[in-house]
Design a protein around this nucleic acid. Structure first.
Length: 859
DNA sequence: GCGGACTGCTTACCT
DNA sequence: ACAGGTAAGCAGTCCGCG
């Protein structure tokens, strides 16, 4: 049997006209709201409907704040590429298995970026995505296919040239890019760069307004009397008894299934609807939820939404919850978008770059406290010990925190998600769940499509070969990274810090680094070597990644950073542009890293190594250049040079020389009134010219250090803050001695509160995976479980006390009496924290006598 | 059997 | 599941020691 007879029959089947298709869908799906002609829509999401065998788009109606769903009417079909000819594929047994689901085989020409030549491929077009991948019998498991692991709805957006986060109008059922207005400042930039279509395209995409979304935060409570039992969505035997809602339209509502027939307090800060059976409450809850296009939860993917769905089905309400769709690891809603903030805040790029590590535990309580100043209501006993009113308050607080996290600072989080969706061209459901490497992958796939480049398989990229030239300094790493120059220990006044503006992205841009340009196939490029290596870089073609990094780096620096600082623009708008430039920063900074990550689809170690090699080259030649000019370099880390008391003219000369020679922008980053180094790298403090204190890496700053010791540490630094000469420096001495001896005394006499002595350490993996050693926080966690039956998860912060009993450590919850504290250990800890300051000032040996010890230091 | 030297594990930080 | 480099504390092991 051959495939062609079947294919020819299918070919005359024309795609349904757009309008008809939409009307059909309108009839079959329940719809809300009326659409006015000319309504403006923001493309927020897309998905595949297996029943309709088509992609549908979720469009946020900016005018009436509903979601409109539009099905594909172009007849777009899933596909993948093969390097076998049509003839070969026609008799391929694996394809024959899917004969009735293969629509067409087509010969196409694509550019192979690795070989730098056009190649012939066969495009296998199929009826549904599962033919390509997603099941154990799918084609990609049996024959070699290209572009077969891209989600179909993503593929669809790339091919139809739609972009998430853009505004569209609907005309006769077709999407049309909407004309949107831009600020005059943005228009000026568009004029300035009128001859650069890539620039214009990105400015237009990013500067579009982001609507204020209509959102609803949801939290549920499941009635489990015993505190130690956690309700399991997969076994939903316990009833849901509370739904809490906080909405952007001011809704503050709790639905309560009064399973104890208790009387409920009046005059709460939320409305309450009481039900005498669970089913009615769930029906009402779903009705409320379906009137909001955006649903926000904290851990809804794995708990709230999942439990609602499973519990409703358990109660026979399948139809009520049919529009909640559970994936392996997520929960999506057909009527809109479900955003799980737990997944979003867990993302390390979001945590460290967007929120500069302001929270360290991924819990509603911890993140709520640090970002919106609101924590959970504490519950220490099982639910049976509390009145239903108290439990409603508890639950409503959770919904309130979730709502605040989604909407604080003018919906910052939702804006950020939308903007990342624009940059990555990724549906916002995925943006808030996936990591930065996926954001990068998605856009790079999109760019390959636009250029008609075939996306190589990971083994083809790796298969290019190329050596690793430098042994990593750190054990377990794949290649050598940055250089950290040894600091010159001591106190230094008037220190200027120079740094390279976004060093690695700039290197990628200026030196044409990309997976296909590093060790390219052209013999004539092979003399274009990375210094001290056998790696060469292409001169003939612009690298796809290099070009992309360069473009968005320029977009950030030349457009959005400037807009964010332009005082002719209103503060609100400036804040919006600041969010954009920040999102770009998060994104750009991760691009180098993903090429050094073995899991990334374009992982190519020689490319990553080329970047760090050039980075080391840049900083070393700058240090040498500085020395040549007679400037004193006292420290440097990766991309920075600390220069002591520089002659301004020499400094300017250095900047000019380096920038010209390396094609990398060296600039003044900050100036310290003074800075204090010990012998340790990545470890110093200083006072900037505006008087602000800058502390780097010192123990006293670490999140694990007990509060009490931190306080002492900062009191000491405070003594040093207003110093502007060496004499003044020593005046602070007596006060510091006083602070330290007082603290030591207090610890020795056990007068410090137990809570202030807690050492806080994050449990990074499940307890049973600590097989090699048992660190102290793991010991404490085990006690929490055995003595208090407290559930512990990876990511939990364990707070423990060093004690003088047989345990040596105990969770803070188990230490009732300060006399249990091992004060000797804490005095040691105090000293090691403080000597990081005093060491730097050449304070050396310890003696048992405090004042003597300090005197030695401050001589 | 004991203690110091050493290595490896773990966490939190810097760029 | 972006990278590598560094500091610090502790757990566990090795080795010498009549």
């Amino acid at each position: 049997m051959r495939l062609d007879s079947w294919i020819s029959q299918r070919k005359d089947k024309k795609p349904t006209a757009n309008k008809e298709r939409e009307d059909k869908v309108n009839q079959s799906k329940e719809r809300r709201g009326k659409y006015k002609c000319g309504d403006l829509y923001l493309l927020v999401s897309a998905d595949y409907d297996p029943d309709e065998k088509a992609v549908f788009l979720k469009l946020y109606n900016v005018n009436n704040h509903t979601i409109r769903i539009i099905y594909d009417a172009t007849g777009h079909k899933p596909y993948a590429y093969s390097k076998q000819s049509i003839e070969e594929l026609r008799v391929n047994q694996h394809l024959l298995r899917f004969a009735d689901r293969i629509v067409d085989l087509k010969e196409v020409i694509k550019h192979d970026p690795i070989k730098d030549e056009d190649i012939k491929l066969t495009k296998i077009i199929v009826e549904d995505p599962l033919v390509i991948g997603g099941t154990s019998s799918s084609l990609r498991n049996f024959i070699k296919l290209w572009e077969a692991d891209i989600k179909y709805y993503a593929n669809y957006l790339f091919d139809t040239q739609l972009n998430v986060g853009k505004h569209y109008n609907i005309e006769n059922g077709w999407l049309k890019e909407a004309e949107v207005s831009y600020d005059s400042a943005v228009q000026r930039f568009m004029k300035e760069y009128a001859d650069n279509p890539d620039f214009i395209r990105w400015i237009k995409l990013l500067a579009e307004n982001v609507p204020k979304y209509k959102v609803l935060a949801v939290d549920i409570e499941v009635y489990v009397p015993d505190l130690t039992r956690v309700p399991q969505p997969d076994n939903p035997r316990d009833p849901i008894f509370i739904f809490s809602f906080a909405g952007s339209d001011g809704l503050k509502k709790v639905l309560l299934y009064n399973l104890r027939r208790e009387s409920i307090e009046k005059d709460l800060n939320f409305e309450i609807e009481v039900f005498d059976n669970e089913k009615d409450m769930i029906k009402r809850a779903i009705e409320i939820m379906q009137s909001y296009p955006i649903i926000v939860t904290f851990n809804g993917d794995n708990f709230d939404m999942r439990y609602i769905k499973k519990r409703a089905e358990y109660l026979g309400l399948n139809d009520i919850v049919k529009d909640i769709r559970l994936g392996k690891n997520d929960a999506r809603i057909n009527w809109g978008v479900h955003i799980d903030l737990y997944r979003f805040f867990k993302n390390v790029s979001i945590k460290n770059y967007a929120f500069s590590g302001k929270y360290d535990e991924i819990s509603l309580d911890a993140i709520g406290r640090s970002l919106v100043g609101m924590g959970k209501i504490e519950i220490t006993e099982g639910f049976e010990k509390y009145s239903l009113t108290e439990l409603c308050k508890y639950s409503f607080r959770d919904a309130e925190i979730t709502y605040k996290l989604a909407t604080f600072n003018d919906q910052l989080v939702l804006k950020l998600i939308t903007i990342i969706g624009r940059i990555a061209n990724m549906v916002i459901d995925d943006v808030c769940r996936l990591s930065v490497s996926n954001w990068i992958r998605n856009r790079l796939i999109n760019i390959h499509r636009e250029k008609n480049y075939l996306i190589p398989l990971p083994e083809e990229v790796r298969g290019k070969g190329g050596d690793r030239h430098f042994e990593p300094v750190t054990k377990g790493k794949k290649y050598k990274g940055a250089i950290v120059a040894s600091p010159k220990a001591g106190l230094h006044f008037n220190v200027c810090v120079l740094d390279f503006a976004s060093l690695y992205p700039s290197i990628m841009k200026e030196y044409n680094i990309s997976y296909e340009t590093v060790n390219c196939p052209h013999p004539e490029c092979s003399d274009n070597k990375i210094p001290e290596t056998t790696t060469w870089v292409c001169r003939k073609k612009r690298g796809i990644v290099s070009e992309f990094v360069g473009l968005i780096r320029d977009i950030r620096v030349k457009i959005f950073k400037r807009l964010a600082k332009d005082d002719r623009i209103s503060p609100e708008k400036r804040e919006f542009y600041n969010v954009i430039q920040n999102a770009l920063k998060v994104y750009i900074n991760a691009i180098y890293g993903v090429f050094g990550s073995a899991e990334f689809f374009l992982f190519y170690l020689p490319a990553a190594e080329a970047v760090t090699t050039l980075g080391r080259h840049a900083i070393i030649s700058s240090i040498n250049e500085a020395k040549k000019l007679g400037l004193e370099v006292i420290y440097g880390d990766t991309d920075s040079l600390f220069i002591k008391n520089p002659d301004p003219e020499k400094l300017e000369e250095l900047i000019q020389n380096v920038t010209k020679k390396l094609k990398l922008q060296l600039e003044v980053d900050k100036i310290y009134r003074y800075v204090v180094f010990s012998k340790r790298k990545k470890n110093y403090f200083g006072v900037l010219i505006d008087g602000s204190l800058d502390v780097k890496g010192l123990v006293g700053k670490k999140s694990s250090t007990p509060e009490y010791i931190k306080k002492v540490f900062y009191r000491i630094l405070d003594q040093l803050r207003n110093i502007s000469s060496e004499e003044e420096f020593y005046k602070a001495k007596n006060k510091i001695i006083e602070i330290i001896s007082e603290a030591e005394e207090k610890i020795r006499k056990k007068q410090v509160k137990v809570d202030e002595m807690a050492i806080s350490v994050t449990l990074s993996k499940p307890l049973e995976e600590y097989t090699k050693t048992t660190p102290q926080h793991v010991k404490a966690a085990k006690l929490l479980i055995s003595k208090l039956r407290r559930p512990i998860y990876p990511g939990s912060v364990i707070r423990y006390i060093k004690t003088n009993d047989q345990y040596k450590v105990k969770p803070v919850e188990l230490v009732k009496d300060p006399r249990e504290i091992d004060s000797e250990k804490y005095i040691e800890l105090l000293w090691s924290t403080i000597t990081q300051i005093t060491d730097a000032l050449d304070i050396s040996a310890k003696s048992s006598d405090t004042s003597k010890r300090l005197d030695q230091f401050f001589v």
